[in-house]
Amino acid sequence: MRRWGTLIWLSYKEQYATFNLISFMVYKIVQPMIQVIFFVLLISKNGDSNIKSVVLTNIILAAVVNAAVYSGVILSNERVQGTLKLIVASRNDTFKIVFLRSLAGIIDAIIMVIVPIILAKFVLHIDINSIDIIAVVITVFLGMLAAIPLSLLIGSMSLITTDLNLFINLFIFVINFFSGALFSSQKLPYLWQVISNFIPLHNSIQFAMAIFNERQPHINWQLVIFSGREISISIVLIIVNVVIYKKFERTAQKGGTLELY
């Protein structure tokens, strides 16, 4: 357990080693906050939204996307630095190691949600007193649990392509688009609405909306449904990941591209 803790911490530390305190805070707090302000202003042009719910769900969206992207770039960074071959050649299962390392993103995301919520009180004058912070943490946790495997799946692409940015951008778009935080999923065509139920974070955002819109009586049931869906998505994605990763690793080994960049 301690060994994994060290691995997760060192991996996280290495990822952000070039950041100083200011740039780290800007990346983790200021930038997502400005993104939230941008979308909130855009959404509020419609004038028919519950601002509090829009702000808070967008904070969750921005935090989860920011933190989950970290998982996607782990493999790519390893490959660029030439350290991927060391992990592949070790006795450990590479995917397991990368997955464990990416769990640091969950703590990351939770902090990235709590701080902006507090800031939102002062900057955007949002009433946060009635927010159940435990429910927010659960939402973020569930959202990350599903978003990390999708991000890792995208990251696996880095074994066979050098254009990971493209896939990361697609990942960000898909999560944003189907989350339901930027616009109601009911605006989507029916088929897309169905698809959105299978996209990570969508169910967590729906759950968060239920909390922020203060529809308390339904929360327990919704918690079960949404978290059940999110966990199922997570499990399916992890299985897909294991299969796909093995396949890509084999392709990279065959093509000698494990350390090519």
């Binding site: 855009l42 042009k45 419609n46 944003n176 930027l182 616009f183 989507l188």
Partner: peptide, 27 residues
């Protein structure tokens, strides 16, 4: 030759247009 760039000039405008369309569709 860089797929990320092709993404920026072709796919991203499509995605952004779709996203903004849905955000502003009540407007």
């Amino acid at each position: 030759s860089r797929s990320t760039y092709r993404f920026v000039i072709i796919i991203q405008p499509i995605l952004n247009t779709i996203l903004l369309y849905f955000i502003l569709s009540n407007k």
